[in-house]
């Protein structure tokens, strides 16, 4: 008699019959699935409140089967602060995380993001860095790499006109209130496995009450980069990781005194 083993199935924390509305090959789908898998593994679905923000990330609440609230553009970490603190004042502890884009987290919302990190809010922020404003059609963002061609940097990002990109995970790691800050990517299996481990670690740090945990997920945007999904992954592997190295920048358990 044969025994069968389920090696993979769609995570429970994804809403039934979900069809992602992202473009073909977009890494958002992988990132969201990893988040859902970790929510499943840590049994967090029933005690979570997720914060969605503006941009491609906003439709979180259509996909994740957890309580969700949408924040104004960039303010996800402030909204998360309110949710977490209000529950605490009410004597209950909820698992609170944000799911934002790079424009949201590191441009319009940098103030809210950075100060939540500095205050050591016991929340987790996930930032999808696809180096442009994806939803509006690929304009230059704070994370667009030097030389990157976008619809608002048609000859490539240069320092005279546009200045330099922000390295979010490095910046967040400098804040004393941060327990964990890392950058991961999704361009191959090894990195996807690593990304999931990292998300899990960041979530666990919140559960342990260690403070602000942060993951920057370097993601592809094939449509706006005008590349095929696999070419977009190669671009991340060969080009973008030079600007944005895949690395753990802070882990309070490893190097508590950074």
């Amino acid at each position: 008699m044969q025994t069968s083993e389920i090696k993979y199935t769609v995570p429970k924390s994804i809403k039934k019959d979900t069809v992602f509305t992202f473009c073909p090959g977009c890494d958002h789908g992988v990132a969201l699935r990893l988040v859902a898998e970790v929510l499943d593994e840590l049994n967090l679905r029933e005690k979570s409140v997720a914060i969605a923000s503006s941009g491609c990330s906003v439709l979180l609440y259509d996909f994740l089967d957890v309580d969700c609230i949408e924040s104004p553009h960039g303010r996800a970490c402030a909204v998360a602060t309110g949710v977490k603190r209000a529950h605490k004042a009410n004597g209950s502890d909820k698992f609170v995380f944000t799911y934002q884009g790079d424009g949201d987290f590191a441009s319009i919302g940098l103030g809210e993001s950075l100060h939540s990190a500095l205050r050591g809010e016991n929340i987790t922020a996930i930032c999808i860095n696809n180096t442009n404003y994806g939803m509006t059609g690929g304009q230059m963002g704070p994370t667009s790499a030097m030389g990157q061609i976008t619809t608002t940097s048609p000859t490539g990002r240069n320092k005279e006109y546009h200045g330099f990109p922000i390295k979010t995970a490095e910046h967040i790691a400098l804040c004393d209130g941060v327990s964990y800050s890392a950058r991961v990517a999704l361009y191959d299996i090894k990195n996807i496995i690593n990304a999931k481990k990292t998300i899990k670690k960041a979530f666990e740090y919140q559960l342990e009450g260690l403070g602000f945990s942060f993951i920057e997920i370097l993601s592809s945007c094939p449509t706006n980069w005008k590349l095929s999904p696999s070419e977009a992954h190669k671009k991340i592997e060969n080009e973008l990781t030079k600007t944005y190295p895949i690395k753990v920048f802070k882990d309070i358990k490893e190097t508590p005194n950074v």
Partner: peptide, 9 residues
């Protein structure tokens, strides 16, 4: 990226 592979057995 699209949950199109629904199971692996």
């Amino acid at each position: 990226p699209d949950l199109a592979i629904v199971s692996v057995i």
